[in-house]
Design a binder for these strands. Structure first.
Lengths: 95, 95
DNA sequence: CTTATATATTCCAAAAATGGCATATTATAT
DNA sequence: ATATAATATGCCATTTTTGGAATATATAAG
């Protein structure tokens, strides 16, 4: 159906929108090598506020780019799309 | 230098931002199979205004995603990054 | 039950994106 | 010089995003 195509495009647009912000990209970079808890990401990106990083992760999650997993007090995030990592690395080597 | 990293991230964010809009994505889809002039894109996407499509192409161009080539009255646009097509196709098969 | 730690949420003003409409530019042909 | 076709640009009201500061929630430990 034509509507499927439109739904797909909108979903893709949402993915790209989630990636269109430098802070969210930095957060994503942190996850390229594997799962991290929020606190570890906060340590790596200390220049940003905790709330900012939390919001960034949630936006990435809503777009389906990362998934999360709760363990005690911590929440662990990791990439959930193979495509994304490849693309980021491809961009990286071409910019 | 650390600044290089930041410049790179900002450039990537710009690329993602350019792709974060459904109309611009539809325009990009038109170009996946090769070069087209603006008038051909307008025909394919007749539901959108000419000005809207023109602006979309320019935004994609500013992000470095497409390049253009003038020939008489026409302007031909085409993809300028290999990564992008691969990523779009990968997304497409996973959504 | 109180405290501490990790993470998420709310509120909000400033900044940026969106898209419609009108208009401008550029190139070609007559 | 004029007309026409293809494309780009400017203006602008509306919507959306951004990020800071404060606050809330959840889990664990004492």
């Amino acid at each position: 159906m034509e509507n499927d195509r439109i739904r797909k495009i909108n979903k893709e647009a949402k993915i790209f929108k989630a990636l269109s912000n430098p802070v969210r990209l930095e957060v994503l970079y942190c996850l390229l090598d594997g799962e991290l808890c929020v606190c570890e990401i906060i340590q790596k990106l200390e220049k940003y506020e905790q709330a900012h990083i939390s919001k960034s992760l949630i936006k990435l999650k809503e777009a389906g780019i990362v998934k999360d997993r709760k363990e005690g007090l911590n929440v662990y995030y990791s990439l959930s799309m193979e495509c994304i990592k490849n693309f980021i690395l491809c961009l990286d080597s071409n910019l």
